[in-house]
């Protein structure tokens, strides 16, 4: 696997590594499929709204749009499986591998390693949340010092990671409604329908507002954050959003003296 330098310099500015190419590509597949799924799905949910029919017609109407939706859904499911394999692979390669090298391979250690993965919520997130409220409610002027993955980003991550296993299989079940009823009672289709459509609504209203606020609308990012393309975050953004990580990397890279305070 390609090694990415933690800090690169462009035009005299420092940029900090965040996402590898594989991760960035996963994200691109994720958002293109999700947007396509939303555009071919919501006209059905809101069929009697004035925009629904023209939008559905644009995707080929009732004969074609469902197939676009299903195939796109399959791609998203495949991405989900790939991603699961991807993190398991990284987990074994980086963490279990290290334990083996260190001859410390015990069940307890593996569990510990699992919970210390950067995406897994931990105690620090809880304190960060409190820090954030203190800051937002004017009790403190110190911004929370997030580490590599803030609790918000973990939420952003687990939204699709819990959403897809709910939406996807329910969608597949509705697709193969005939065959599925040979194994499950018919009322399960009612349940799949609610799971599919309401989880989709949650995803859509969340992504449109919360995620896009974080990467599009927010005054620092508007019109668009570039990290999803470049994989690197500017020093400014690192200081605002990942101060703990910033300090740590600067120290690791021997740039301790150049660390800028958050309230510079």
């Amino acid at each position: 696997m390609q090694r990415y330098p933690k800090i690169v310099r462009r035009n005299g500015k420092r940029y900090f590594f965040r996402f590898s190419l594989v991760q960035r590509m996963q994200h691109i597949i994720l958002f293109t499929t999700v947007i396509t799924l939303a555009l071919t799905g919501f006209p059905l949910r809101y069929y009697n709204q004035p925009w629904a029919k023209p939008l559905y017609e644009f995707f080929g109407g009732i004969d074609i749009a469902p197939w676009i939706h299903r195939i796109t859904g399959l791609i998203l499911l495949a991405l989900f499986l790939f991603h699961t394999g991807y993190w398991i692979y990284l987990f074994f390669k980086n963490r279990v591998g290290r334990l083996i090298r260190e001859k410390a391979l015990t069940v307890g250690n593996v569990i510990k390693e699992f919970f210390s993965m950067e995406m897994i919520p931990n105690k620090k997130d809880f304190y960060d949340l409190i820090d954030m409220f203190k800051y937002l409610l004017f009790f403190s002027s110190r911004r929370p010092h997030y580490d590599r993955i803030s609790w918000k980003e973990k939420f952003d991550y687990f939204a699709p990671y819990w959403g897809i296993p709910i939406l996807g299989p329910a969608g597949v079940a509705l697709w193969f409604r005939d065959e599925i009823t040979q194994y499950v009672p018919g009322i399960a289709l009612n349940a799949f329908y609610i799971m599919h459509t309401d989880e989709a609504l949650l995803a859509a209203i969340f992504l449109f507002f919360v995620h896009w606020y974080n990467v599009h609308y927010s005054p620092e990012k508007f019109p668009m954050a570039t990290v999803f393309l470049t994989g690197y975050l500017s020093e400014e953004e690192m200081i605002h959003e990942h101060y703990d990580e910033y300090e740590r990397i600067m120290k690791e890279e021997g740039l301790e003296l150049e660390i800028i305070s958050q309230n510079h």
Binding site: L201, Y217, P219
Partner: peptide, 24 residues
């Protein structure tokens, strides 16, 4: 401009909260 943008965005946030209620 930044301040105006922030105020507009706050308005959008309030609107979104209002808009969401019937959607949910």
């Amino acid at each position: 401009i930044r301040t105006l943008y922030i105020i507009a965005l706050m308005g959008f946030t309030l609107w979104y909260g209002y808009f969401l209620y019937p959607v949910i």
